[in-house]
Design a protein around this nucleic acid. Sequence first.
DNA 1: AGCAAACATTAACGCAGTTAAGTAATAGTA
DNA 2: TACTATTACTTAACTGCGTTAATGTTTGCT
Lengths: 203, 203
Amino acid sequence: MGAKEKRNRNKEEFRREILNSARDLFIDVGYEKFSMRRLAEKINYSPTTIYLYFKGKDDLLLAICEEVAEQFLTKLSHIRSVQSNPYEALRHTMLYLVEFAFDNPNHYKVFFLTRPDVYGTHEEFMNRESMARNSYFEFRKIVQVCIGAGKLRPMDIDVLTQVLATAPHGLITMTLYQNSFPWIDRKVLATTLVDGLLRGFQQ
Amino acid sequence: MGAKEKRNRNKEEFRREILNSARDLFIDVGYEKFSMRRLAEKINYSPTTIYLYFKGKDDLLLAICEEVAEQFLTKLSHIRSVQSNPYEALRHTMLYLVEFAFDNPNHYKVFFLTRPDVYGTHEEFMNRESMARNSYFEFRKIVQVCIGAGKLRPMDIDVLTQVLATAPHGLITMTLYQNSFPWIDRKVLATTLVDGLLRGFQQ
DNA sequence: AGCAAACATTAACGCAGTTAAGTAATAGTA
DNA sequence: TACTATTACTTAACTGCGTTAATGTTTGCT
């Protein structure tokens, strides 16, 4: 066994290698079929080795998700900085949310539909740094500006933010999971939803 | 073993008994912890016995879900028959969708978020009788009436139906799965969403 | 040379869904 | 009544999972 060069590699580096392979496998075989044992086989190590670098499966998946969540968050700020019209910024943000989910269905499933308690209690979630939390704040900021600019009705900022942020998820989860159903083109549904919803909250 | 009276029971009857126990266990321990082995223990039979009455776990869970889906569908027709105002009927239908999910979170998870292909292809879904399909038709009918009565904008009926039907699911899945997040009261979010959304499609 | 830390492995536990083979009791028939 | 086929159910086992404990092996340090 050529186990010599395996040693010449520091911890952080190897952790990243595992993470990369995990991401590939995850995207390749999907969330349902991803397993520690498969990953171990792919990287030619025993399953237990992974546990020297990650606390467990949840920890590993969360790491994968934080990766793409960072992408997501970056894009959100980008949209806000590019669009001078706050209403258009919000609209594009919502549309991007849907597009992002369609482009990363497996990440989406892990991120939103598994392990409900990885972020701890409400307080811990709000206080501890995380991509999920920061994304919410970013989204909220855009909504705030829209209300401030008189584009949307003045109302409780968190109620409106949560309504606008969650509604697209319905479209996503349904079209993602209900494959038997003859959905209309997802892009059409997305724009119809977003435009209709925002129209409903204009003043 | 008092295995005598076990014989004096016809097949259909026993199937129902298993189904009842399964439903209880399912509601009791939740989707994640439900297992064939646990169910077998609960009904004092070996796990393999269940396979004489159900094809497998999926089949069993689907049977449980069709049960409550029937409840759901009954309520939908009821709402439509009680409400003379079509707009109010639609509004109540959407609100009931959310309420139903909150009342039956485990059923909801199985029904909407697992096994995407139990209903086969698009064509099979549309042609074969199922509670899921019938519920969609029922929902669609209400939307149709609203458009016909001039309460909602005239537009593609399926696009509008799918948008109105899926949006609430976002609220549901998020509040159901993201327990770490400090959500506003779900009822408030639901009414805000439904009213805002419908307002956006009024003419 | 001896030792401790680092790295990786094998073996195993407990759980899951499911299948194959076997057993005991009943019903039907000659 | 004796033989047979069917029914109802069980035991044992297979594959796969996440994870832990114990063990071995290599490396660098003193």
